[in-house]
């Protein structure tokens, strides 16, 4: 065997190994998602999605948890979207390359890396106890907002930067102010990218348990929360509760709840990806 054959063989083996590794990454995902669908689908019914839990949560529906998670997601969006997008605008349109800007970037990187349970501690310390919001949707939304902020800022900044510099130059040269340029030209052009980032950030918030553990979550609250100062059930915490804390819980309901949470999160993911790819396809620059 000559060296070139040998080299080709090594290459083939190497590529083969890499595809096995890639398969090793994706196969479990497919299996897990498939398995949850398979086990959870029989649990899904009209009552499961729209009813209140009954018989110590072993029967009935999970509406309060679904609604709680929706409220939390929206609450998170209310705080994090304006702040995150504004911060992204600052970084992309206003900030100079100086120490302060570098500090801001460092802070954002840091926020992204802080463990979710530390956010929980912080939320407990600041919002629940110090500001006396109690365990409430408000405290949880605020905690989750700060957690999602770095995702929103960095994706939104990327989207803003993708708008060609010439657009801005033209707008300014036509007499528009900086803010007018941003609002009329840059923001509309980068909107799909920003929305994608926002949804991806909120997706993470919706699936998290640790930050809401001490700030929002109620074990059992068979009604819908009616003020931001109410505690609430939430899907991830509810799944944790019924899979570890309630005796004699039918397996079907555990997987059913997991499926609803999964659909919620994956649905947001799909939405984000669709917006992104449609915007890319439509982009003229």
């Amino acid at each position: 065997m000559n060296t070139s054959q040998q080299r080709n063989l090594i290459q083939k083996a190497g590529f083969g190994m890499l595809s096995v590794v890639a398969l090793l990454t994706v196969l479990p995902i497919v299996l897990v998602v498939g398995y949850i669908f398979y086990q959870g689908l029989p649990a899904i019914s009209f009552e499961f999605l729209t009813g209140l839990p009954r018989e110590g949560m072993r029967a009935g529906g999970i509406l309060p948890a679904i609604v709680g998670t929706i409220y939390l997601t929206i609450g998170t969006a209310i705080f994090s979207v304006p702040l995150g997008v504004a911060a992204a605008i600052y970084l992309s349109e206003y900030a100079q390359d100086n120490l302060l800007t570098r500090l801001i970037r460092l802070a954002i990187i840091n926020l992204a890396g802080i463990p979710s349970v530390v956010y929980g501690l912080f939320g407990l310390g600041l919002f629940v106890l110090f500001l006396n919001f109690g365990t409430s949707l408000l405290a949880g939304s605020l905690t989750l907002s700060i957690m999602t902020l770095p995702v929103i800022i960095s994706t939104a900044e990327e989207a803003l930067r993708a708008v060609p510099q010439s657009f801005r130059v033209v707008s300014i040269s036509l007499g528009a102010t900086r803010w007018q340029t941003i609002r009329r030209i840059v923001l509309p052009e980068s909107l799909p990218g920003i929305i994608t980032g926002v949804i991806l950030g909120l997706e993470r918030a919706a699936g998290e348990t640790a930050p809401i553990l001490f700030t929002v979550a109620a074990f059992f609250l068979p009604r819908l929360p009616d003020s931001p100062f109410d505690a609430s059930m939430a899907l991830p915490y509810h799944l944790f509760v019924i899979s570890t804390q309630v005796p004699g819980m039918p397996l079907k309901l555990q997987y059913g709840t997991a499926l609803v949470l999964l659909c919620f999160v994956l649905g947001m993911n799909l939405l984000a990806t669709t917006i992104r790819s449609r915007a890319r396809a439509k982009r003229q620059w």
Partner: peptide, 28 residues
Amino acid sequence: DTMVNLALAWAEAYQEINPQVRISVTGG
């Protein structure tokens, strides 16, 4: 936590007879 399911069952049964009362139950 030992009592949480008991507390749940109490709360559910009681709220059925007294719908104007809202009881939230949490373990931990």
